[in-house]
Structures are given as structure tokens and as C-alpha cells.
Simulated scan of single mutants.
Amino acid sequence: MKKLLLVFLVLILAVAALAFYVRGEWRVVGNPAEGGIVEIPHGLGARAIVGLLEDKKVIPNRYTALAYIFYSGTRNRLQAGEYLFDHPMTIPEVIGKLASGAVYLHKFTVPEGLTAKDIAQKWQEQGFGSAEDFLNAANAAVEVVRRFDDKAQSVEGYLFPETYSFPRRTTARQAVDTMIARFQQMIGRLRQIQPEDKWPLNLHDAIILASLVESEAAQADERPLIASVYLNRLNRHILLQCDPTVIYALEQGNRYRADLQFNSPYNTYVKPGLPPGPISNPGYPSLLAAVQPTSSNYLFFVRTVESRHTFSETLAAHNRAVDAYRKLQKSAGKKAG
């Protein structure tokens, strides 16, 4: 009986010593992963995952890590993906990261004023996938846009520009849907600032106007003024004569005099009113300018120095502004020569 009791006591002490050792190991930190990133592939079990982490030296001991997984009940919660291990972490910290799915997110930056084709190129340049895949996804997502704008012809204008954070292997369609959802959030913000029944145009036309403002304005304070010019011309049935609409129609970066007669619904030198759809994807300031423009009598503007514009109420005043700018350019050219 005494021997049995002694054996039982030894077992208890051994288990306690093992537990003490394991808990001590849980407090030991590993090393940063080489390159900072470790990818956990889909389909790996807990044993394979801790083996991979040990090979990468993120954890010091796979067996104590496995013990922690069973102790914490996270065996079936470890998630695949890319994880950032750029500083030493303990085993509980590492396993907690995997169990919470705190995957590393890659930045996808979309500047204001890009077209869908431009964004597709950015998608490819930033290593997310091919431009073709992005455009195919964008074309397929037009039905999503039509749920809130039944006049939409494409997703052009509805891919909200900002910096997004996507996990690796995010599909082009997931990115497009995220950008459209973000656009809807921005429209909701606009409605809080200015009720939609007080907008000068309906939603569809407001987005078109915002895209024109985005294409013309380089200075934030001029956006509401530029919006007012186009609205004034619309109200007076004057051709908008917006150069970027011609460029959009021609899909080129330069405009020539002959192009002004180019037969396209986007050629606002020929076709009255707004073009049938947005010509770019405007940012929030341009959207705000379209629904809350400055009240003015301006009908013309011309770009001058430092990407600013001179605004005019009459054609005579506009022509004088154009002449003044040309003289300034000519003078600058002589000085440069």
C-alpha cells in the first residue's frame, strides 16, 4: 500500500514538474520570421502548423506549442493565411494570432480620379492579380451598382478611391465589391450632410458631375466652384465643353482640335448635357462639391498658374483670361529658353 502511494506521489510530482516546465516554455519568446511573413497554407493540421512555425524559428518548441493548443482549445480554430511575425513572441501570443485570424493585410492604394482601367492596372502593378481579371470582375459587378443606381451603365464612378487593406489572395471581385460598398458608405455620409432632396441633381447625375469636377480640379477649394460652373451651363443649356470627357471618349491622353467633333455621347463639345456616365472614380471632396456646390454666376474657367483656375461670368472676360494665360506661358517659355 505504501509503495502504491509512493508511486502515485511520484507521478503527481512528475506531472507537476512537467506542467511547470511547459508553462515556463510558454513564456519563452521565439524569433522574428525571416522576411517577417509566414504563410500558413490551407488544410494544415495543428501538428503541421507548429512544425512549420518551429522551422521558421517563430516558436522554440513544437511540442510545448502543441500542448498549449490542446490546453487552450484552439486546435480547430487555427486559420490559414499570411501572418506577420516581425518581433519575438511567446507561444500563447503566436497561437492566439493564428486563432483570431489576424492575417497580414496588403495595402491597395487607389488615387482619386482614376478610371476602372487605371485601377485595374494598379491592381496588377501592386501584385494582386492581372488587370484583365480586375476588369472582368468590374464588368460583372455592374448589377451590384444597379441596386442603388438603376441608371448605371458600368461600375465607372462607383469604385471609391482610397487605400484598402486586403489579405493575400483576395480576388478581384472581392476588391471590387469592397470598393462599391465603400462608395455606398460615402453616399450615406453625403446624405447626412445634405439631404438628397436638396441635391441639385439626382444620384446618377451627381456622380457624373463629381467625376467631371475630379478631372478638372487640382485645388480643393475650387471643386465647389467648378461644380457650379457646370451646373450653371446645364441650367442655361450651354454645352459643357469639358476636355476630359473628350479624352475619356478617345481613350487617349491628348486632345487635338479635330477631336472636338468626335462622335461620342461623351463628347461634351458636341452633345448637350452631361455625358451618359462618370468618366472617372471621384473622391469624397468632389462628390461633396457635386451635391453642395458654391452658388455663383460663373460660366467659364481656364487653368492658370499653380494648377489654379480663373473663373469668368462672360465669354469676353473668359477670353481675356485665356489671352492672359497664353501670354504668361509665352513669357515663361522665353525665360526658359
Rank of each mutant, 00 (worst) to 15 (best):
E112V: 06
E112Y: 13
L114T: 13
A116M: 12
K117P: 01
D118M: 10
K122E: 03
W123L: 00
E125F: 07
E125D: 13
G127T: 06
A131C: 01
F134E: 00
F134P: 00
F134H: 01
N136H: 03
N136P: 00
N136G: 00
A138D: 03
A138L: 06
A141L: 02
V142K: 09
R147H: 15
R147C: 14
F148E: 03
K151L: 15
K151T: 12
A152T: 11
S154C: 15
V155N: 02
V155E: 06
E156P: 02
E156G: 09
G157N: 10
G157P: 10
G157V: 03
Y158P: 09
Y158N: 10
P161N: 13
E162Y: 06
Y164W: 10
Y164R: 08
S165I: 08
S165L: 14
S165A: 14
F166E: 02
R169E: 11
T170W: 04
T170D: 05
T171M: 04
A172N: 03
R173N: 10
A175T: 08
V176H: 00
D177K: 08
T178F: 08
M179S: 07
I180L: 13
R182W: 04
F183A: 06
F183Y: 11
Q184L: 15
Q184R: 15
Q185A: 10
Q185N: 12
M186Y: 02
R191T: 12
I193F: 05
I193K: 11
